[in-house]
Simulated scan of single mutants.
Amino acid sequence: MSVRTGVTKKTYIALEKGKETVNVGLLVKVMSVLGYADRLPDMLASDPLGEELEEIHGRKRGGHLEG
């Protein structure tokens, strides 16, 4: 599968294990190749770590509208 997605086997294994070293661009690329691009919006909508960081730092990320 790593050949099909254009990444090394080591990187693909890191992605499968959810390692923090994998960037979002790589995740998007692999999900697109595997036919799961339609699941990206749901994945990106749920960001518990980002929400926790917002609470800690008292900030809101771009795209969050209050109303």
Rank of each mutant, 00 (worst) to 15 (best):
S2D: 08
S2Q: 02
S2M: 06
V3W: 09
V3M: 13
V3H: 10
V3F: 09
T5R: 03
T5V: 07
T5L: 02
V7I: 07
V7C: 00
V7D: 01
T8F: 04
T8S: 13
K9P: 09
K9R: 15
K10W: 12
K10Q: 13
Y12S: 01
Y12M: 02
A14N: 14
L15K: 00
E16S: 00
E16F: 01
K17D: 03
G18C: 00
G18F: 00
E20C: 10
E20Q: 14
T21Q: 08
T21S: 10
V22N: 01
V22Y: 03
V22M: 04
N23V: 11
N23P: 11
N23F: 09
V24N: 08
V24T: 14
G25I: 07
G25P: 03
L26D: 05
L26P: 10
L27K: 12
L27N: 06
L27S: 07
L27A: 12
V30K: 02
M31S: 06
M31N: 04
S32V: 00
G35Y: 08
G35M: 03
G35P: 01
Y36M: 05
Y36T: 05
A37N: 04
D38V: 06
D38Y: 08
D38E: 07
D38C: 04
R39W: 09
R39Y: 10
R39S: 09
M43E: 09
A45T: 14
A45E: 12
D47H: 08
D47V: 06
D47A: 15
P48I: 03
G50T: 00
E51P: 03
E51S: 04
E52H: 11
L53A: 02
I56R: 12
I56K: 11
G58N: 09
R61P: 00
R61Q: 05
G62T: 14
G62E: 13
G62H: 09
G63K: 05
H64C: 14
L65F: 14
L65E: 14
L65I: 15
L65M: 15
E66G: 09
E66H: 11
E66R: 13
G67H: 15
G67N: 14
